[in-house]
């Protein structure tokens, strides 16, 4: 007869494996995105080691691409760090939402869970939590660790193969299309659309020194949405 300890271990294992399997539908989005990020870093003139370090130390596609673009344009180091960090501020929101589910984890496991946090792992785990299904923390580790592995493999492929693609194919446009794919589902309410329009508009119109455009545009976008929310709070439909 299995002891409670064994049952516990089995439940964890099956939650972990369910998480790993939940990656499958995400593959068509993850693999090309990872390759684009790897190719962007190598294309910006970073060495193989540096490009790969960006992939596993930062491990966040949008900010990896932004950092690569800023490296290529000769922006100062602190602007690259500040802009990439601003792109990743959303992780604080995810961290706060998942924190109650990691209370049972020891210190090192919490740090591991935090390191593996991504948009996709968060979104899929949250959907499972909202469904009221148990084992969220081990399910999360399963999907997050599998995504990490797939991300590193596709990044490495992009770093090594990216340079073989001819310039005339305008593959840089894949970066814009990737972001459009991430942006579109966010445009659910008026305030989100305002943030996008103001952010995009400011990025096009501003010509600031030291490539601070992106930081300023992000501030403009958030400010526009908050202003709209304040002026017409009634029709607000956001979460």
């Amino acid at each position: 007869m299995p002891s409670p300890n064994d049952e516990d271990r089995l439940a964890r294992r099956s939650a972990f494996l369910a998480g790993a399997r939940a990656c499958l539908p995400l593959l068509p989005g993850i693999l090309p995105f990872g390759m684009v990020c790897g190719a962007a870093a190598a294309g910006a003139g970073l060495s193989l080691g540096q490009s790969f370090a960006l992939s596993w130390l930062v491990f966040a596609g949008s900010s990896q691409i932004v950092a690569a673009q800023l490296f290529a344009s000769g922006a100062p180091g602190w602007v690259i760090i500040a802009t990439g960090w601003a792109v990743n501020l959303r992780f604080m929101m995810y961290s706060a939402a998942l924190a109650p589910h990691f209370r049972g984890f020891s210190g090192p496991r919490r740090w591991l869970a935090a390191y593996l946090l991504t948009d996709q792992a968060f979104a899929v785990t949250l959907a499972r939590i909202l469904d009221g299904r148990p084992g969220a923390s081990w399910f999360y580790l399963g999907i997050a660790a599998t995504l990490w592995l797939l991300w590193q493999i596709s990044s490495l492929a992009g770093i090594l193969l990216g340079a073989l693609i001819p310039q005339s194919w305008s593959v840089d446009f894949v970066v814009a299309l990737t972001f459009i794919g991430v942006l579109a589902p966010l445009l659910r309410d008026r305030n989100m659309i305002a943030a996008a329009v103001a952010g995009g508009g400011a990025a096009v119109l501003l010509d600031l020194p030291m490539k601070l455009n992106l930081m300023a545009a992000a501030v403009a976008g958030v400010a526009a949405a908050l202003l709209l929310e304040k002026l017409w709070p009634k029709s607000q439909s956001g979460a």
């Binding site: 949008s62 792109v87 970066v175 972001f179 990025a203």
Partner: peptide, 18 residues
Amino acid sequence: RVLYYVPPAVLAAIVAPQ
């Protein structure tokens, strides 16, 4: 509230100049 609006603002700001 601030963090909620960061992703659309940043993503659009990355795409538009391209």
